[in-house]
Write a protein that binds this DNA or RNA. Structure first.
Length: 300
DNA sequence: GTACAGGCAGTAT
DNA sequence: ATACTGCCTGTA
């Protein structure tokens, strides 16, 4: 069976819960990516042609951003074939053609998932847009105003109260502490990228407010660790329903899995899934995650 | 009112 | 190691 890379679907990928700061205006999608506004427009006039149907722009210009953001440098045919040995992943790959893992800006990704704990996607978006509006630089694109993602130094300099006012709640302390660590170069994204998965994960877990799940999201979506397998409530649900066989006999009841995962349980499950899917477990996770939310009827 | 949402840290045992 | 708790805040 061959998977077709040309069926890449940017709209589906943007809306798959990996990235939070994209919005649709008229017939185009606009995304905040660090200090750039990215624009993706569907050219309906050329809908009959496969090539060049999607137009990619960036402000300021940044040629080839789509290749980096959507990981077009991955050998997607190979990856999908490898993870499709698993029947459920295989059916998800066929069911959601064009879904990809994104390669986000590491700093934006860290703050985004740091904000994501204990809330739903709508609220994550709201908080992040508020932070941009309050602390980010303004840019006008196509007559609309956009606010870039805040720089760590600006969040580092902010009052906790100002951050709380963006709707972050108790996350404000974590945001400020992460900003300080990046500003002081205690955390350097390029170094984390060079490290192994395990070493980079340990570094992330040292950051206040970052636990197993958040760390794995950052590793997968921005630090080149495609073996990372984040387990959130949706993935936990699908594991308990469909992958009981991988859980081991006496380890945990599938019921406890739906509620809270201890650190030990998370480590165990995550490494089991990594053993099962291999070096591209993160891609498998993304397809399973999408499937799990889709069958639950979530509207993203 | 109160339960819940893509977790996490802190404390006691 | 595990069990249990509180946490900001918006929405149903």
């Amino acid at each position: 069976m061959s998977m077709k890379a040309e069926c890449f679907n940017p709209e589906l990928t943007i809306n798959s819960g990996q990235m939070f700061l994209w919005q649709k205006k008229k017939d185009a999608w606009y995304g905040i990516h660090a200090d750039h506004v990215l624009k993706l427009s569907i050219d309906d006039q050329h809908a009959d042609k496969k090539e060049g149907r999607i137009k990619y722009d960036s402000f300021p210009e940044d040629r080839g951003w789509e290749k980096r953001l959507f990981r077009m440098d991955d050998d997607i045919d190979k990856i999908l074939n490898i993870i499709s040995f698993d029947p459920l992943v295989r059916s998800s790959v066929m069911r959601y053609p064009g879904l990809r893992v994104m390669r986000q800006d590491p700093i934006q990704c860290m703050f985004s998932f740091l904000c994501a704990s204990n809330i739903n996607i709508q609220r994550i978006r709201k908080i992040l847009f508020n932070l941009c509006n309050r602390f980010g630089k303004k840019m006008t694109v196509d007559g609309d105003q956009f606010f870039m993602f805040p720089r760590p130094r600006d969040l580092h300099a902010a009052n906790i109260a100002e951050i709380v006012n963006c709707g972050t709640g108790y996350r404000a302390k974590s945001i400020k502490m992460l900003a300080s660590k990046i500003h002081n170069r205690e955390i350097v994204p390029q170094e984390l990228i060079r490290m192994s998965y395990e070493d980079a994960k340990r570094s992330l877990l040292d950051i206040y407010g970052i636990g197993d799940k958040t760390a794995d999201c950052i590793l997968l979506f921005s630090l080149e660790k495609l073996e990372a397998f984040p387990i959130d409530t949706w993935i936990a649900r699908i594991i308990s329903n469909k992958y009981e066989i991988l859980l081991g006999k006496n380890n945990m009841g599938t019921s406890s899995l739906r509620h809270h995962l201890s650190h030990q349980q998370y480590r165990f499950l995550s490494s089991r899934m990594r053993m099962h899917f291999g070096a591209y477990a993160g891609y498998a996770q993304q397809y399973l995650y999408y499937y799990s939310r889709h069958i639950a009827g979530r509207k993203w």
